[in-house]
Amino acid sequence: MTTLSTGHSEIISQNPVDLAEELAGANDWAVERHGEDELTMFISGQYTDLQFRVFWREDFKTLQFACLFDLKVPEGRRADIYRVLGMINERMWIGHFEYWSEEDALLFRHASLVGDPLIGAIGEEHMVTMVETALGECERFYPVFQFVMWGGQSPEEAIESAMLECAGTA
């Protein structure tokens, strides 16, 4: 798992998008700011490039991440992708994967509520944990999507192939 840092001691921000921007800078990720409450970080993963979108909704005190893969689903494989998404999401504790047909995009999405008066804002540790979790899940399940779309495997075969954990060294 990738360990991230903002390069600061525990920072607290009322607008967590500012903190996400600091995190991107500390990790040398390209960033596009789309206003006060939204940004996109461009991250090179182990398997593919990711667009990591961060959205802040002040009215709901909610921070949402959408981590999009750099792949397009072939039309003939969409039914299997929907099936594998359901199977993957059954294994998820935090967040979920989905397919946006209008954008032809596979992504991981998760939201965090910040309505607790004891929390008050999202700090560095919270932000880093959310980003690490999203990146980790994208890296873990990317091969499943590849096996289904381009390897011709069924969703069951793809999950079994990708979820094998190797022990020892070669």
Rank of each mutant, 00 (worst) to 15 (best):
W29L: 00
L50D: 02
Q46W: 06
Q46H: 06
T3H: 10
V31P: 00
D49N: 13
E10P: 12
E36D: 15
L50I: 09
T62E: 13
D59F: 14
L50E: 04
S5P: 11
N15L: 09
A24M: 08
F42K: 09
M41L: 15
Q51W: 05
A30F: 07
V31G: 01
Q14Y: 12
D28Y: 10
Y47K: 06
E58W: 06
W29F: 06
D37N: 15
W29A: 00
E58P: 11
T48I: 15
T62F: 09
F60T: 15
H8E: 14
F65R: 04
L19R: 01
E32F: 11
V54I: 11
D49E: 09
Q64T: 14
Y47A: 11
Q46C: 09
I12V: 15
F55H: 12
E21V: 05
A26C: 04
E58Y: 08
I43G: 01
R53D: 14
R33W: 01
F52G: 00
A26W: 02
I12W: 14
M41S: 11
R57I: 15
V17G: 07
I11V: 15
F42N: 04
D37Q: 12
Q64V: 06
D18V: 08
S5H: 12
Q51G: 10
K61W: 13
M1C: 08
L23R: 08
R57C: 12
M41N: 03
D18P: 03
D28V: 10
T48E: 10
W29Q: 03
S44W: 02
T2Q: 12
T2A: 13
I11G: 00
V17F: 01
S5L: 10
F60C: 13
D49F: 05
I43H: 00
W29I: 00
E38Q: 10
D28A: 11
V54E: 05
M41P: 04
F52V: 09
W56E: 01
I11S: 10
F65S: 01
E36N: 10
A30G: 11
F52I: 04
M1L: 07
A24H: 08
T2R: 11
L63Y: 08
L4Y: 12
L50G: 08
Q14I: 11
V17W: 03
G7T: 07
K61F: 11
T6L: 07
G7C: 07
T6C: 11
I12R: 14
E58A: 15
M41C: 09
S13F: 07
E36G: 09
N27I: 05
D37F: 15
W29T: 00
M1I: 09
R33S: 08
H34D: 12
G25C: 02
W29K: 00
M41D: 01
L63T: 03
F52W: 08
A30S: 14
N15F: 05
R57M: 14
D49M: 03
F55N: 06
K61H: 14
D49L: 07
R33I: 03
H34G: 03
R53G: 12
T3S: 13
R53H: 14
Q14F: 09
M41V: 06
P16C: 02
I11Q: 12
T40M: 08
I12G: 15
E22N: 10
L19Y: 02
G7I: 06
N15P: 03
